[in-house]
């Protein structure tokens, strides 16, 4: 019998060479999508830059010392909110396209799938933030003399862990509801913006909201990065905050994964992975 060459021989599962680093699938796919939606990308980046410039110019009206304070807020919030947003967005996108069933049918551990999206979000966030920083420096002629830039970067990277954890929790929302999930994640994001002292000290908040700011990792991130860049705080001075942020991240990532797994099980019980959109 003549056999179909493309399927000859049928290889038993596991006998074929398998590629490692499967999480690269998510990174490559997401960057390919950016390339295809380049028009949207230009609009988002443009809006992001103009928004940050407006905030910075408010600082100019308040006196020179306020500019860097607000610029740090705009930059850090831009990075952290992007991490958070992208994780929910990727799941949402797959639900609209109907590909989530195919991604979840692949023999890939769910943690690999989620970490692939996280890794992409970090790389993408760093690129966008670097571009934003470049433009702000160009317009405002910012000086970072005496700043502990390395310390600020360490704080940023470590705080990324806790935001990945929060992003994993937010990523369950589009699993629960295609139509309302991503929108609900914006509410979550907005509350963090309000309580974390992104553009003001948390001391100005009413007492009941201020107590919430203790729970937000962004509060500690911003405080530590401002200390490093505005006051030149040393690594020794930053160490307690770095350890705290690392601790929050170490707790939040497994919690985020566990919550996502629960949501996936719920979706498989109720049939919610089915295409919608």
């Amino acid at each position: 019998m003549q056999r179909i060459p493309t399927l000859e021989p049928m290889v038993p599962a596991g006998a074929e060479p398998r590629m490692r680093l499967r999480f690269l699938a998510l990174i490559e796919r997401n960057f390919a999508l950016i390339k295809r939606y380049i028009g949207w990308e230009v609009v988002f980046v443009f809006y992001n830059i103009v928004n940050a410039l407006c905030i910075a110019f408010i600082g100019v009206t308040q006196g020179k010392g306020h500019v860097l304070y607000l610029v740090i807020g705009a930059l850090i919030w831009g990075f952290l909110s992007l991490l958070f947003h992208e994780l929910a967005e990727q799941v949402q996108w797959e639900r609209w396209e109907g590909t989530i069933e195919y991604s979840f049918m692949a023999p890939m551990h769910r943690l690999t799938y989620l970490l692939g999206n996280c890794f992409y979000a970090v790389v993408y966030g760093v690129l966008r933030s670097a571009l934003l920083l470049g433009v702000l420096v160009l317009f405002l002629g910012l000086s970072l003399k005496g700043a502990n830039i390395a310390g600020a970067l360490v704080v940023l990277v470590v705080s990324g862990l806790s935001f990945i954890g929060l992003g994993l929790i937010a990523a369950i929302l589009p699993v629960l509801s295609t139509e309302k999930g991503a929108q609900a994640s914006h509410i979550f994001q907005a509350v963090i913006l309000l309580i974390s002292g992104v553009y003001y000290e948390v001391d100005v908040l009413p007492a009941w909201i201020r107590s919430l700011s203790v729970a937000s990792p962004a509060t500690y991130t911003l405080r530590a990065i401002r200390a490093a860049l505005l006051e030149g705080a040393s690594f020794k001075e930053l160490a307690p905050t770095i350890l705290l942020l690392a601790g929050i991240g170490i707790v939040l990532i497994p919690v985020g994964f566990a919550v996502f797994s629960l949501a996936e099980r719920w979706a498989k019980r109720t049939g919610k992975l089915k295409r919608s959109g």
Partner: peptide, 10 residues
């Protein structure tokens, strides 16, 4: 290509 990577096929 995305599917191939998910399944680990070179």
């Amino acid at each position: 290509r995305y599917s191939a990577r998910l399944y680990g096929v070179p």
